[in-house]
Simulated scan of single mutants.
Amino acid sequence: MEFEFMTTECALPCLVVADDDNGRYMIQNVDRSGEVFNSKEELLEWMETCWRREMMVEPELYDRMLKELKESVLLV
Rank of each mutant, 00 (worst) to 15 (best):
F5V: 02
V73W: 10
E2A: 03
N29H: 12
A18I: 01
Y25E: 08
D63L: 02
L61Q: 13
E35R: 15
L61K: 07
S33T: 12
L44P: 01
A18F: 09
V73E: 04
L15H: 09
E4N: 05
V57R: 14
M56A: 02
L74D: 09
C10H: 08
E2I: 15
L69K: 05
A18P: 03
T49C: 04
P59C: 03
E71Q: 09
D19P: 00
A11P: 14
C14L: 14
V76L: 11
R52V: 01
E71M: 11
T7C: 13
V73G: 11
S39R: 06
L44A: 02
D21M: 06
E48K: 10
S39E: 06
K67S: 09
E45W: 01
V36L: 03
F37G: 08
D21T: 05
R24N: 07
S72D: 15
A18V: 12
S39G: 10
T49S: 11
E60N: 02
F5T: 11
I27L: 10
E42Y: 06
T7K: 13
M47V: 12
R64G: 04
E58D: 15
P13G: 02
L15Q: 10
V17P: 00
L44V: 15
K70D: 10
G23Y: 04
E60I: 03
C50W: 06
D63S: 04
R64H: 11
E9C: 00
M65S: 15
